[in-house]
Write a protein that binds this DNA or RNA. Structure first.
Lengths: 142, 142
DNA sequence: GGCAAAGTGGGGAAAAGTGGGGAGTTTTGT
DNA sequence: ACAAAACTCCCCACTTTTCCCCACTTTGCC
């Protein structure tokens, strides 16, 4: 169970420390990949396996399915958490999510989402004040 | 489990180094063949055996089935990974996928796909910006 | 305040990626 | 048939990147 928002940094070697409170629910290994909205997603292995299996079962004949597989599998990286609780974020993923330096990690219950500080701030201001309307469109949940 | 995207080179002798992270899930032998979209595919032996069996079971009376068998079996090459972690890509396959020099290898969970750098870049620009729509058509996965 | 855990930074050993030489074999051309 | 050329395969060498370990600073907690 991943909860909370954490601001921290990614160092010059591309290493990212996973906040201790998020790390607890993560095993020693995890899979990092990209999300369509220009941020990264970190899955614990069991959650990743579920996703990977569903994705693999899509028909190879469907072009959209293949494109999505390229996006997810091709953008993925199996991460081991080192002795300091860090993972290595490949240059390609750093680039995709415009991450250099300040980072925001968000626990999303089943997985962790990683944003560049700048993109996160932008998102916050966009959504702020509008959350009433957004929630209103999803009545029935509460 | 093959994951990630890697840019590297094929040397003048037709040798292609398999990135270490992809090599780990590969045995000492693998099968390289062509894919309909002008790139190459590298299967580990167990995955290849499954594919080959399915392909063999197709009806010989069906012309399309025979053509597909020619395409896959005829284009296939059994590869051994040498001491430096490289395979040799036959000239015919290099030619088919327009590979000379820069190459992109993509882990696709169960197999590895190999593109020429140029063709990959073209594909990327085509898909870029469209990934939202593609993902939207496949909701239920996330 | 002091201790422990978390977060951050850097240096050095090891591995990965790349290129090339040369012996042995096959193919090509005369 | 024979020589020359091309191709394989195996070995070695160099450069770059990655990984692992250690050390310091900061934060939180008793």
């Amino acid at each position: 169970m991943f909860l909370g928002t954490f601001e921290h940094t990614l160092d010059a070697k591309g290493r990212l420390a996973i906040p201790a409170k998020l790390r607890n629910s993560l095993g020693e290994k995890a899979v990092l990949t990209r999300s369509p909205d220009r941020c990264l997603v970190l899955y614990p292995m069991d959650e990743w396996n579920r996703l990977a299996q569903q994705l693999s079962q899509l028909s190879q004949a469907d072009r959209n399915a293949r494109d999505l597989q390229y996006f997810i599998f091709g953008g993925a990286s199996e991460c081991e958490i080192d002795a300091q609780g860090r993972i290595i974020v490949p240059a390609m993923l750093r680039n995709y999510a415009s991450i250099d330096g300040d980072v925001v990690s968000v626990g999303m219950n089943t997985h962790i989402v990683i944003w560049s500080q700048a993109a996160w701030a932008e998102r916050e201001t966009r959504v702020n004040g509008d959350i009433d309307n957004i929630a209103a469109q999803l009545v029935g949940l509460f």
